[in-house]
Design a protein around this nucleic acid. Structure first.
Length: 365
DNA sequence: AATGTACGCAACCGCTCAGCA
DNA sequence: CTGCTGAGCGGTTGCGTACAT
């Protein structure tokens, strides 16, 4: 049994609002307010609109002091950093940008900002993948799993880019500082949407040591120009490290299909099982960035270093120590706030200001 | 000039959550 | 405690417009 509709769909007008409808709605709300009941409102003023539609129209368009378009550089920065920190929680992001609506920010992000920062390559990959995948079940499965991983990867990529902008000499811009596994891992990050590379990764993991097969697959994945034979020497413990690292990375990314099979990564890799489990029965994507960032910090960057040495190993995280703390704090703060209130409008200016000081320290572009 | 394609934005849909009886 | 209802949210869709061929 489905849920009862909020209004009589047959007698409700849909589509763009006319100036007359706008005027009616605006005049009424400005004089009487919403009355706390959006559903009843259209009937009161003789509008053949759904209450939800009225609410949306008011909030996104008619409300006083609404700004449209013309996003400033500062607003871009705020949106980017908050997206990285908390994901697509547009209402929370909108609450930090006076005059902006969640819808506006969401559209702006999807149509411009994301492209500006990430480019279009990945999107075209996704489209290609979707069109090439004929099996409908596979499409459904891959798209649902990608919903999480794409968001995570986007945020990860943005995080890297912001870090690069903040400090051009930092880890990410300095190949000399990269761990040995970086070409492989980076390749996987960039190509994790690509089925063929997933297959190759699976083949790599399944192939036996020492017969050259691993070498071939590695070459296909990374290209011979990046090949470091030292990784793949028979009995070289680095091969195991490579495998473990691959498994660890894969296990945190549901877009890599073999994670869901029997070839599950060693639990000692610290996989994000908890976060996945927290994703509720309705398949809500995991939207908190903190576990992903933590995982990235503790797993995805790990090459040949022990867990305890990982932070020390990467300059970027030395630089970022404060940032990371801020992010964790931010994330917790957001969780608390969003749990107790649907809006941050009640947040004191002082607190907000303090938070942005923190945040600006971390991500000033 | 005509047609096709890409893009941006407004609006809708369906879900979850919170408040209330 | 439970079920119902409305509010709010994020994802998606559809349409108008700009741009390319």
């Amino acid at each position: 049994m489905g849920r009862a509709p909020c209004c009589d769909k047959a007698n409700v007008k849909k589509g763009p609002w006319s100036p007359e409808e706008d005027a009616k709605l605006k005049a009424y709300i400005e004089e009487y307010g919403t009355g706390g009941n959006w559903i009843a409102l259209p009937q009161k003023i003789g509008l053949k609109r759904c209450g939800k539609s009225c609410r949306l129209r008011w909030l996104n368009y008619l409300r006083p002091n609404i700004k449209h378009g013309g996003f400033s550089e500062e607003e871009d920065n705020i949106i980017c950093s908050l997206y990285i920190s908390i994901g697509s929680r547009w209402s929370i992001i909108a609450a930090q940008l006076p005059g902006r609506t969640d819808n506006d920010i969401k559209n702006y992000w999807n149509t411009r900002l994301k492209k500006k920062l990430l480019g279009r390559r990945k999107q075209s990959n996704i489209n290609r993948l979707s069109s090439e995948t004929s099996d409908s079940n596979r499409v459904e499965e891959s798209s649902s799993s990608m919903a999480l991983s794409q968001s995570a990867l986007e945020r990860l990529q943005l995080h890297i880019q912001l870090q690069s902008l903040q400090n051009p000499f930092s880890f990410y811009n300095n190949p000399a500082l990269w761990p040995k596994l970086h070409p492989f891992q980076e390749k996987m990050l960039l190509q994790s949407m690509n089925e063929s590379s997933n297959t190759l990764m699976q083949q790599f993991l399944n192939s036996p040591h020492g017969n050259g097969q691993k070498l071939d697959i590695y070459e296909q994945l990374c290209g011979s120009d990046t090949l470091d034979q030292d990784y793949l020497k028979f009995d070289n413990p680095k091969v195991d490290c490579l495998e473990n690292s691959l498994k660890g990375l894969a296990s945190t990314d549901s877009s890599i299909p073999f994670v869901n099979g029997n070839n599950v990564a060693d639990s000692s890799m610290g996989v994000r099982v908890d976060a996945v489990e927290q994703s509720d029965a309705a398949n809500q994507p995991v939207s908190t960035f903190q576990p992903e960032l933590e995982n990235f910090i503790s797993n995805k960057t790990s090459g040949f270093v022990s867990q305890q040495d990982q932070f020390a190993e990467f300059d970027c995280f030395k630089e970022m120590n404060a940032s990371k703390d801020s992010l964790i704090w931010w994330s917790n703060e957001f969780e608390t706030k969003s749990a107790s209130s649907t809006s941050w409008e009640s947040t004191s200016a002082l607190q907000t200001e303090g938070m942005f000081q923190d945040y600006e320290l971390s991500y000033n572009m």
